Simulated assay, not measured.
Amino acid sequence: MDRYDRLLLAELLENGRASFAQLARKVNLSAPAVAERVAKLEASGVITGYRAQIDLSKIGLPIQCVIELRLAQHGSQQAYEELAKIPQLTQCHRVTGDPCVIMQAAVGSMPELETLIDRVAQLGFSKTAIILSSVVTDRVPLAQLGLPPPRDA
């Protein structure tokens, strides 16, 4: 990956819907060169996809939380399979440290949150924190790639 690839990644992180012509103007390359580079980044697995960012509260999920879980049976594949079936979970990570799993969830109401906590607690000891606001979300550490932070940071 060279400087142009890193610049393209930074621009795509800011606007994944940018056209090749728009990207070309931002990084000082031709549109065909940008198209070729983006295709190579996709083929190599650096770019794994494009997605819309959704305000969960505007689709009826105003309560987001972080749930830590210490499994009753450490490393239980069955527990991980059960967690994967819970539709309210937006992220689920197996981690080192005291909790075995850290998850994020989105629910529509406090009763739904209570039901979710009860379901998760069947797998072990859980601790839940409601997210009040988010200071950083979905950020890629561009400085480590030798690039400046996003313009809005």
Score class of each variant (00 low, 15 high):
1 M>Y: 08
1 M>T: 09
3 R>Y: 09
4 Y>C: 00
5 D>K: 05
9 L>M: 13
11 E>T: 04
11 E>L: 02
13 L>R: 14
15 N>C: 09
15 N>G: 06
16 G>W: 08
17 R>F: 07
18 A>E: 13
25 R>V: 07
26 K>Y: 05
26 K>F: 07
27 V>D: 00
27 V>H: 06
28 N>F: 14
28 N>R: 15
32 P>D: 11
33 A>F: 05
34 V>S: 09
35 A>Q: 15
35 A>D: 04
38 V>R: 14
39 A>S: 12
40 K>I: 03
43 A>L: 02
44 S>T: 11
44 S>I: 00
44 S>R: 15
44 S>F: 05
49 G>E: 11
50 Y>E: 02
52 A>E: 12
53 Q>A: 09
55 D>I: 06
55 D>V: 08
56 L>F: 12
56 L>P: 01
57 S>H: 13
60 G>W: 05
63 I>E: 03
64 Q>I: 02
65 C>I: 14
65 C>M: 15
66 V>E: 09
67 I>A: 03
69 L>K: 11
70 R>D: 01
71 L>T: 09
72 A>K: 15
73 Q>K: 13
74 H>M: 01
75 G>F: 13
78 Q>F: 09
78 Q>K: 14
81 E>M: 01
81 E>N: 07
82 E>C: 03
85 K>D: 04
85 K>A: 10
87 P>L: 06
87 P>S: 11
88 Q>C: 00
88 Q>T: 01
89 L>S: 03
89 L>D: 04
90 T>C: 04
91 Q>I: 00
93 H>L: 08
94 R>Q: 13
94 R>G: 02
95 V>R: 02
95 V>I: 10
98 D>N: 12
98 D>K: 07
100 C>E: 15
103 M>G: 06
103 M>W: 14
103 M>I: 10
104 Q>D: 05
104 Q>N: 10
106 A>H: 10
106 A>S: 13
107 V>K: 03
108 G>M: 03
109 S>K: 07
109 S>T: 07
110 M>W: 08
111 P>E: 13
111 P>H: 13
112 E>G: 00
112 E>Y: 03
114 E>M: 04
114 E>C: 01
116 L>H: 10
119 R>D: 04
124 G>A: 05
128 T>A: 06
129 A>Q: 14
130 I>C: 01
132 L>R: 13
132 L>H: 12
133 S>I: 01
134 S>W: 00
135 V>L: 08
136 V>A: 05
137 T>F: 05
137 T>K: 14
138 D>R: 12
138 D>H: 13
141 P>L: 14
143 A>I: 06
146 G>Y: 11
149 P>H: 12
150 P>A: 09
152 D>E: 14
152 D>K: 10
152 D>A: 12
